[in-house]
Design a protein around this nucleic acid. Sequence first.
DNA 1: CCTTCGCACTCGCTTGCTCGGAGTGCTAAA
DNA 2: TTTAGCACTCCGAGCAAGCGAGTGCGAAGG
Lengths: 349, 349
Amino acid sequence: MENEVDGLDKRKAYILATVVYEYIATGEPVGSQALTQKYNLGVSSATVRNEMADLEAGGYLEQPHTSAGRVPSDAGYRTYVDALMSPEELGADERRRIRDEMRDARAQLDEIVEQSSRLLGRLAGNLAFVTKPQSDTQSFRYAQLIWIADRSGIAIIVTSLGVASQSLFELRNDVTPDDLTRLSNALNAHFAGRLLRDCDDRTLTTVTKSCGFGDDMSAAVRAAFVGARTQEQPGISASGAQHLLDQPEFRDVRKLRSILRILEEQRTLYDLVADAFDSPSASVKIGHELGSEELADLSLVTVPYRFGERAVGMLSILGPRRMPYARLLALASGTAETLSERLHDVEVK
Amino acid sequence: MENEVDGLDKRKAYILATVVYEYIATGEPVGSQALTQKYNLGVSSATVRNEMADLEAGGYLEQPHTSAGRVPSDAGYRTYVDALMSPEELGADERRRIRDEMRDARAQLDEIVEQSSRLLGRLAGNLAFVTKPQSDTQSFRYAQLIWIADRSGIAIIVTSLGVASQSLFELRNDVTPDDLTRLSNALNAHFAGRLLRDCDDRTLTTVTKSCGFGDDMSAAVRAAFVGARTQEQPGISASGAQHLLDQPEFRDVRKLRSILRILEEQRTLYDLVADAFDSPSASVKIGHELGSEELADLSLVTVPYRFGERAVGMLSILGPRRMPYARLLALASGTAETLSERLHDVEVK
DNA sequence: CCTTCGCACTCGCTTGCTCGGAGTGCTAAA
DNA sequence: TTTAGCACTCCGAGCAAGCGAGTGCGAAGG
């Protein structure tokens, strides 16, 4: 059926698209007359009324109260995002500005991530957050075991993005600084360039023992690698919450509270993007799709960023369901791209 | 003048104290009748009216509009905090609960600091924030220079609180891993236990050169120490912004925006407590004393916490000017005390 | 001379009301 | 199947009245 979209005939689809578009632009429930006046639909308001009634019956639109205009439902937005809206691209000048602003950050992982969340929050006029690169997708660069006392030391592990993690260890038997250097060299030789998640416990143990160390040292080495893998937990930088205050949907202060709470609990914030991690491309979650009644009138746009070929983290925008999806997707993608490029500046070669 | 406080006779002082107390409790402008009814002042409302008029002339009270009750001015709160209110102490059970909750955090510097800001935010029902220990008040524990290639490496510095900082360096001449180990050992021997801020550039250079290295290596070592000193910048953990929404003074959303903005700019947040760093004990800033029109109807309570004898960071509570000062001071002090204790758990001995 | 009483006056907030505008659904005609 | 017309619904802005809490002041009392 060439002239059907998602089970809607062409006219219905067009009317739905127009309603969503208009509602996103104005924030006011949109009525049949207003629509026919502002857009050239080629039919009268009465026809639009009938179509709107159908769309409401189909679950795409909702009516706040009897004599008001229509507002998109979750399903309405979903159809709009998936099939109706025209994707946006950033202009060359916008790309350039993003790149310029990203240059302000020093070549430090944390700073680059923070800068991109600030930038995205400001450009998008919404709450933006960026997860730091998952450490288990980074690769191992160097390990160094530092001798502190006969039976204790510090293990330092440096990843491809220059994030060092450290862990103290205690041993049952004496070691010398030279022993530790020997083991460091063996680890470096064996694991150089490997993904952290591929540095499995068994191999670590084998390498350690082959240098003549016992169980205590193997355990210490394994713990150090576990620390490096899970280090910085998720690690999220968020920014732009103040923009949410401008949105009329947050006149009601209670909704703000949910957001602030979520903002402070990084755990929850992370859960929101967690399942987007599996998808290689942009993802949009609308209203109840976020899985929480508190967040029911928000939407989330999530875009991955890469280090080399690998997706290592996510940029997200959280805002009212009534958000300019096409525009925000374009902004998030553009920022993700620039962030990906800048990651190479912090790479430990 | 035994019966004068801050230029006010005893009765005026008592009335001022009662007005502030009542206003803090209710949030409503307090009138003369209400006051005489609720508190046993021993005089009639008419007398109170006269006294209130005097207090207003003296700048201690203000009237939102002609036929409303009185509200404390900055000066009124100031007098109350300095001279009138009775200090509060935490009960034994409250202390115990704070200690228990702090135990939930793992023995990691960041986690302990975050936990205390969360805890304080919740207990105080306001925005709380805690600066991480200034690194230049920590002492040097270990340095390790790691060889990466003939002319580059990573310098790792570990402080007394276990915070490692790292910096990459490039050299003009080849070095061997052994060279770097030798230098690491020299640095460790020379600076062990010193405060970071006392590891001055000149001495660093001397030690480096005495191991036979050139200017490039000295510069790298100096840079590494600078990195360790200024590392984590100020570093602030904030929590509890959602409580502010409960305060009636934030019905107006614009005020919230200033706060959210400040919250995201750690710089500003840090500036707020910066000058409290000099004072060894608790400090209170009221309204305009915060130095910004945006923050004019907020107050800030700041209390230092210690590592050993030294004040290394600050706990602060930011909330409406109408805050229970005595209570919040007690809570902040109690939390600071517990935080100070827990710091010893993360000490690298 | 300080305190108290009584009184007239001032505001801001709440409640109730009206009224206009925008939108709907339905019916009948094109 | 589309359109025009019409009666109906509902929200929200605007206005007026009344209430309550509070003030300031002049006169009376200890």
